[in-house]
Simulated scan of single mutants.
Amino acid sequence: MNDLIHAVAALLLPPTGAFPLLLLAWWLRHRRRWLSGALFATGLIAVWIGSTELGALWLQDRLLGPQQAVQVERLKDVPPKETMIVVLGGGARKLMPEYGGAQLKALSIERLRYGIWLSRQTGIPLMFTGGTPRDSSDERMTEAALAERTAAQEFGFTLAAKEDRATDTRENAEFTAELLRGQPIRRVVLVTHDVHMRRSLRAFREALPPEVEVVPAPLGLALPGFEWRDLLPSQEGISRARYLGYEWLGYVGGH
């Protein structure tokens, strides 16, 4: 049943989510010409929005609101020992043939790299949260363990802590709050991608005590302005639109 739900959700995400509108327009072409034309035009616009970088960014701004990069200097107004950078895992693969073993997915590596950069700029310790990938039967192969290994081997960096039980965003927040309980933490700097940030902020603000400030540190932000190529379908546009659709469905669903 779970696989069926994921399959249906995958079809409803951009740009394929517009296909039902196009099919309905085709079915109504002889019965309701004006309605058929309106549905067809709406479907084409939806396909364009779900296939282009500009369309995906426009939709993201309206669904999730604008976001800005964290101000590094602002993070220094609280002592490092009272702050924790928390990097959210973005997935792992149990086997990458080119490496001959398990590795973090690109989203996780991007977040880890940015978290390490922030830690080195501010002196704030860093923890990574991520448990066993859902498609893995090896409970030892957690995202957090892979992040610890990657940080040490590829960045020469040591994590301050790791949370290795969470399998979704809400568990990231709940289990992180458990680990931080009893520590003199006044601020959590939350590192994840911009599209994922709104859902993550809600989860962490609900899980952490009200006196702990949660500061968003999004990555993947788009540059201001655009060029004509952003109007064309692209892999980047499709990826952002699908990620946005997934995150928005998760947010409205309360996950």
Rank of each mutant, 00 (worst) to 15 (best):
L112R: 03
G43A: 12
Y99T: 03
R111Y: 08
F128E: 01
L88F: 01
M141L: 15
P79V: 07
A106Q: 12
T129Q: 13
Q67M: 15
G65R: 06
L146V: 03
I45A: 15
I109P: 06
G90H: 01
P97F: 03
M96R: 11
R120C: 10
G90D: 00
R140A: 15
G130V: 05
V72P: 04
D61Y: 12
G101C: 15
D77A: 02
P79M: 05
S51V: 14
T52F: 12
G123I: 12
E73Q: 15
M84Q: 10
A69D: 02
Q60A: 14
P80D: 07
V78T: 13
G131F: 04
T83L: 07
R62P: 10
A69P: 02
T122Q: 09
R120P: 14
M84H: 07
G43Y: 09
E148V: 07
V86S: 04
D135S: 14
R74K: 13
G131Y: 05
L95F: 12
E73D: 13
R74M: 09
A41H: 10
T132R: 12
Y99H: 11
Y99E: 03
F128V: 14
E139Y: 05
I85L: 08
R113F: 08
L63Q: 11
G101M: 13
R149Q: 10
E143A: 03
D138C: 01
